[in-house]
Design a protein around this nucleic acid. Structure first.
Length: 395
DNA sequence: TCTGGGGTCCTAGGACCC
DNA sequence: TCTGGGGTCCTAGGACCC
């Protein structure tokens, strides 16, 4: 058996741990630049506010309905997530941290007759130690555990737990799960399934495997089998090293200014470099991209450039040189730019880097400088020390 | 007249997740 | 004025290898 532990309305719950006054009230958390809604309390969901709703359109509605509105704080969510995961890890040896607010745990061979009892205990302990309410789904496959978790949240909120331990348990949860809420089915597949008369997960379990393979390929077949109770996905204990690292933002305000964009891209590279060094990796493919605002009725431009480095590196100095060369190649004057980003791939462990035959760079010096920079920035705050191309504060 | 058969690697794009 | 920011896996097709 697997259990899926999922924090309830995570970003809202994080805010509530510091502010008891917003308990039982409609609360929403907004995206970067306060653009749209990315988290809702149950009370806010009851007011029919939708994920992704535009904040400026809802301003009046929020005021009229006493909705508490907050900007997001990702550093805080990261900290609280770490505490929640550490608390769970103490109680369950086999665990996979699946996202900032979810973990699968291995419920095989647990010293409990009754798994629901163990789940109760985990739920109470996480709440006590971190203040975060969670829901738990228990089932023989990960996909069914996801189904059980959603069912627990929606129909068993008082206890917050649902276990699929028999065909009947499974059918109750599956018939109440619309296909679009199944793990692995997004907007397009849901539409396709509906067009073929399949609306809930129970109906889907009766579909022909070959038909699913034709329409949804092997991923769809695995999902089907998992829903039927056959395990296709096991628990990943070790987090896999990242294959790509991306830092991108939309700008609060659009800009035409090449200097502003250059400094922004340099700062994105600094973040990418930090992440690379944190996981002790180097990389040799850089992807730089630049957008105008596609929602606006004005001249549009999108372009991107991929650059190959001769030797894999995690030196911010070195990556910035290439990234800015890429930016130069794609930047066109006259457009109102809205968003830019830097992606790095071709990632290898830093102790397995192949040095190019003609490499002339003094890599030990870079490494020393990066180590000193990381250490200062870690103890004294981000960008205490930075590369000059990042600029000295915009405007 | 007649033009092999087996691979690998890379890229772009599409689907999905939180 | 105003629309998030990260990721994963899979497939198809082209270039290339012997």
């Amino acid at each position: 058996m697997f259990a899926l532990i999922d924090c309830n309305n995570f970003y809202v719950s994080c805010k509530r741990t510091f502010n008891a006054k917003i308990e039982k009230k409609p609360v929403v958390v907004l995206s970067n630049n306060d653009g749209c809604v990315i988290a809702l309390s149950n009370e806010a969901k009851a007011l029919d506010i939708k994920m992704g709703a535009l904040a400026f359109e809802k301003e009046e509605f929020f005021a009229k309905n006493n909705v508490e509105v907050f900007s997001s704080n990702y550093a805080l969510y990261g900290d609280i997530s770490n505490r929640v995961m550490a608390t769970i890890a103490e109680m369950a040896p086999g665990m996979e941290v699946y996202s900032i607010d979810e973990a699968f745990i291995d419920f095989h061979n647990m010293p409990y007759e009754n798994l629901e009892e163990l789940a109760q205990k985990i739920r109470a302990t996480v709440k006590q130690y971190t203040g975060i309410p969670v829901s738990i789904g228990i089932a023989p496959t990960k996909t069914l555990a996801k189904v059980a978790n959603r069912y627990a949240k929606k129909y068993r909120s008082a206890i917050g737990i649902y276990q699929i331990d028999s065909d009947t348990d499974a059918e109750i949860a599956l018939v109440n799960t619309p296909v679009e809420d199944i793990w692995g089915i997004g907007y397009r597949y849901a539409k396709m399934l509906n067009e073929n008369g399949i609306f809930n997960a129970l109906q889907l379990t009766h579909a022909k495997e070959e038909w699913i393979r034709q329409k949804m390929h092997v991923v769809g077949v695995r999902m089907l089998r998992e829903l039927q109770g056959e395990m296709c996905y096991s628990l990943k204990n070790e987090p896999a090293p990242k294959k790509g690292i991306c830092v991108s933002r939309s700008f609060g305000r659009t800009t035409k200014d090449v200097k502003v964009i250059t400094e922004t891209v340099a700062t994105f590279v600094a973040r990418v470099g930090e992440k690379l060094r944190k996981q002790k990796s180097c990389a040799h493919i850089i992807h730089v991209f630049l957008y105008t605002n596609p929602h606006k009725d004005e001249p549009q431009y999108f372009n991107s450039k991929v650059l190959q480095l001769p030797t894999s590196t995690n030196s911010t100095f070195e990556i910035i040189r290439y990234a800015l060369r890429g930016l130069e190649l794609i930047f066109k004057t006259g457009y109102n730019y809205k968003k830019a980003g830097v992606m790095i791939s071709g990632i290898v462990p830093e102790n397995q880097v192949q040095i190019s035959l003609f490499d002339a760079r003094k890599r030990e010096l870079d490494a020393k400088a990066m180590k000193a920079m990381d250490s200062l920035n870690r103890t004294m705050g981000r960008d205490t020390v930075k590369v000059a191309t990042q600029g000295f504060g915009l405007e």
